[in-house]
Design a protein around this nucleic acid. Structure first.
Lengths: 189, 189
DNA sequence: TAATATATAGACCAGTTGCTATAATATTAT
DNA sequence: ATAATATTATAGCAACTGGTCTATATATTA
């Protein structure tokens, strides 16, 4: 009984990691099997609609994990400047150990889905939305007006995504650290 | 003679578009053939090292096209605020017609390459660098100190990449327009 | 022990990249 | 001008891998 769930969740965790890091099309089901140690036949037992369902469910998992993590990091400081700086610095610290980047990178999967996998695209959009909401809430708690908080939350989110992309491409976390530096200016207004 | 080059460049242009929009792994050679109308055998005649060489050469092409385009858009206004706003607005205008987005989106290809295709990853890093340089030059011309220009150039670049990712995922150019709105604040310092 | 539910291995076909044998075209020699 | 040769270009096949599904094994319950 416990073992069943274990197989399912091993598949899920491995799939999530590979989809986010290597991409949806680059990761074969066989790779997921091999790396997770799960039996081949189990994929279609637990996810009867195949690879795309697996991606969808993996994304669900990610949304939950990430929510907790972001909320924790942002609540480490009441001052929003310090809180966001802490959050982004934490991401920066793991750029050179991406296997521990724990569900942070979303851009690859969502761009792959954007034109070719509508249901996955929508799920990605929802995940982005959920993350932004956490940022916005922190900003509102810190006294920003709703409209301004919405705007800044979106800017912070897109800076983070862009900086992750650049940092991973260049194998150098300078882009993320530059964002950290920019936060005080951004939240001064 | 002219026809030869035509086949080669048709392949290249189609490949570039599909790689950037659908991704490297999602686009098959057959798809490139079909959409470009080029003969099947020609791919390995013009690009003997296969798909990855094709991606590399397509990226070269992109770097040239894009350089001209960005420089043109940025020189439309002397005021850097207006210039960058114009540049980003132009991108935003094409979010709903991505086939005309002309080599702008880089994130997908570079994230696919980041962990699995080292030479392509380096090429993407170089392309990002080349683009940033154009931004930085504009800022220097506008009177920013070199260090500050480097920093702001990077921020602008990563905001654009992040905003494209979000805009494409949400099929809505609000993220890009929010960046436009943010530019005056950013360049005030 | 039979019947049902759960889980899995391995076969299958479609589609992939890469290549080779051939065709078309240009170039040179007679 | 024609034949022989070299160059350029292309069609289509081979080898392989991918996702999918089915037939079988294992466990659970009646």
């Amino acid at each position: 009984m416990t073992v069943k769930i274990d197989t399912r969740s091993k598949i899920l965790k491995t799939a999530l990691k590979l989809f986010q890091l290597h991409g949806y099309h680059a990761t074969g089901l066989n790779e997921i099997i091999k790396e997770s140690g799960a039996p081949k036949g189990s994929i279609y037992y637990y996810f009867p609609n195949g690879k795309e369902e697996l991606a969808l469910k993996a994304l669900d998992l990610s949304t939950k994990i990430i929510k907790t993590r972001i909320q924790q990091e942002l609540s480490a400081f009441i001052d929003p400047v310090k809180a966001f700086q802490f959050h982004i610095t934490e991401i920066a610290n793991f750029i050179n150990h991406p296997e521990n980047l724990d569900d942070i990178p979303m851009s690859l999967l969502s761009l792959e889905a954007a034109f070719t996998m509508e249901s996955l695209r929508k799920a990605c959009a929802a995940t982005f939305e959920a993350r932004k909401k956490i940022y916005v809430e922190k900003l509102i708690q810190s006294g920003f007006k709703i409209d301004k908080a919405e705007e800044l939350g979106m800017i912070i989110q897109l800076m983070i995504e862009g900086a992750i992309t650049l940092s991973l491409t260049q194998k150098d976390n300078l882009p993320l650290l530059t964002v950290v530096k920019q936060i005080p200016m951004l939240l001064k207004s």
